[in-house]
C-alpha cells in the first residue's frame, strides 16, 4: 500500500469507511431481520431453532407440498430454458458469427429486446398465446418454458457474446472447415469446447433468472417456486421467510459463481483494458 502513491481522487480513509459502513449496515438490516424472524418462538416470545427443525419434520413434506411442487416446476422450467439456450441460441450465435457476421448486431438487438419490455407488458401478449397453447397442447407447466427461454435471452446472449468475441470464432471455423469438418462437427468439436466458460455462465444465469421468475408464472396461472412461496406465506409466514432466506443464500452463491466465471471471461478477452462504458443493459432481476 505504502509503496504506491495515493490515488489523488481517493476519498480520505475515514470518509470511505464511514460511507461504506453506514450503507452496508442499512442493507444488512433486512437480512438480519429475516434470520431473527425465523428464530422466533411464537409461544414464549423468545428465540428457538424449532421453526427450522419443523421444516424437516416428517409431516412437513405434505404441509409444504406446494413448495415442493414449485421447486420441481422451477427445476423443470430451468431445464427447458437451458435447452433453449443450448439448442437454439448457442448454435445460432456461432452460426451468425461464422456465416453472417454482419447480422451479429441484429441478433444482439433482438436478444436485448426482452430487457426493454417489462415482463408485466409481455404477459399481456402471452395471455392469448397461452390460452391457445392451453387449448391445443394443454395447461401443463412445461410450456411456460418457451416464454422463459425468451426472458433469459439478454442474459444468456451477453454471457456468450463476450466469450465468442474473445476466441476468434471465424478463424477457428476456417481452420475447422479447411480440415474437412462439417458444420455440426465444427460446432460440437471446436466451438462448444472453446465456449465452455461462456456456456457455463449462460446456463447459471438462466437457472438463476428462472428460479426468481414470478410475473409470468403468477399471471399465467402456473406454479413455480416464487408463486408457491407467495401462497404458503398466507398459511405460514415463517416457512416462506425461511425458504426465501435459504434460496437467497443459494442464489447468492450461484451468482457469485457467475461473477467469478465472468471475471475469468474478462481476463481472457483480447480487448484493451479500457474502462467499460456504462453498461446499456444491466442485469435486470426478476422483480
Amino acid at each position: 500500500m505504502s509503496a504506491k502513491p495515493r490515488h489523488p481522487l481517493a476519498p480520505a480513509r475515514a470518509t470511505r469507511i464511514i460511507i461504506l459502513a453506514v450503507i452496508g449496515a442499512l442493507f444488512a438490516v433486512p437480512i438480519a431481520s429475516m434470520v431473527e424472524f425465523t428464530l422466533r418462538d411464537p409461544q414464549t416470545g423468545g428465540h428457538t431453532l424449532n421453526n427450522w427443525a419443523s421444516l424437516f419434520a416428517p409431516d412437513a413434506a405434505s404441509t409444504y407440498e406446494v413448495v415442493w411442487t414449485g421447486i420441481g416446476n422451477s427445476l423443470l422450467l430451468s431445464a427447458f430454458a437451458v435447452a433453449v439456450v443450448l439448442l437454439i441460441l448457442v448454435p445460432t450465435m456461432v452460426y451468425v458469427e461464422v456465416e453472417f457476421p454482419r447480422l451479429s448486431r441484429v441478433l444482439e438487438f433482438i436478444c436485448l429486446i426482452p430487457l426493454s419490455l417489462p415482463a408485466i407488458v409481455l404477459v399481456v401478449g402471452y395471455v392469448p398465446v397461452y390460452q391457445f397453447i392451453g387449448r391445443t397442447v394443454g395447461t401443463d407447466v412445461w410450456s411456460l418454458g418457451f416464454a422463459y427461454g425468451i426472458i433469459v435471452l439478454p442474459f444468456a446472449h451477453r454471457a456468450l457474446k463476450s466469450n465468442l468475441d474473445a476466441i476468434g470464432i471465424r478463424v477457428l471455423s476456417e481452420a475447422g472447415r479447411t480440415l474437412g469438418d462439417s458444420w455440426f462437427g465444427f460446432l460440437w468439436r471446436v466451438a462448444v469446447p472453446n465456449l465452455r466458460s461462456g456456456i457455463s455462465a449462460a446456463v447459471l444465469i438462466t437457472v438463476a433468472v428462472v428460479f426468481g421468475e414470478f410475473t409470468l408464472a403468477s399471471l399465467l396461472n402456473r406454479t413455480n417456486l416464487q408463486t408457491a412461496l407467495n401462497i404458503i406465506n398466507w398459511q405460514n409466514p415463517f416457512v416462506s421467510v425461511a425458504i426465501s432466506l435459504v434460496s437467497l443464500i443459494a442464489v447468492f452463491l450461484l451468482l457469485l459463481a457467475v461473477s467469478g466465471l465472468g471475471r475469468v471471461g474478462v481476463r481472457r478477452t483480447r480487448r484493451p483494458a479500457t474502462p467499460t462504458p456504462v453498461s446499456p443493459t444491466p442485469l435486470r432481476g426478476t422483480r
Partner: peptide, 20 residues
C-alpha cells in the same frame, strides 16, 4: 454483493421487508 442484491427482487424481497 451489489450484483446479487440488484437481482434480489420480487416475492422474497417482499418477505424480507415484511420480516423487517
Amino acid at each position: 454483493i451489489s450484483s446479487v442484491l440488484a437481482q434480489f427482487g420480487g416475492v422474497m424481497l417482499a418477505f424480507a421487508f415484511i420480516a423487517t
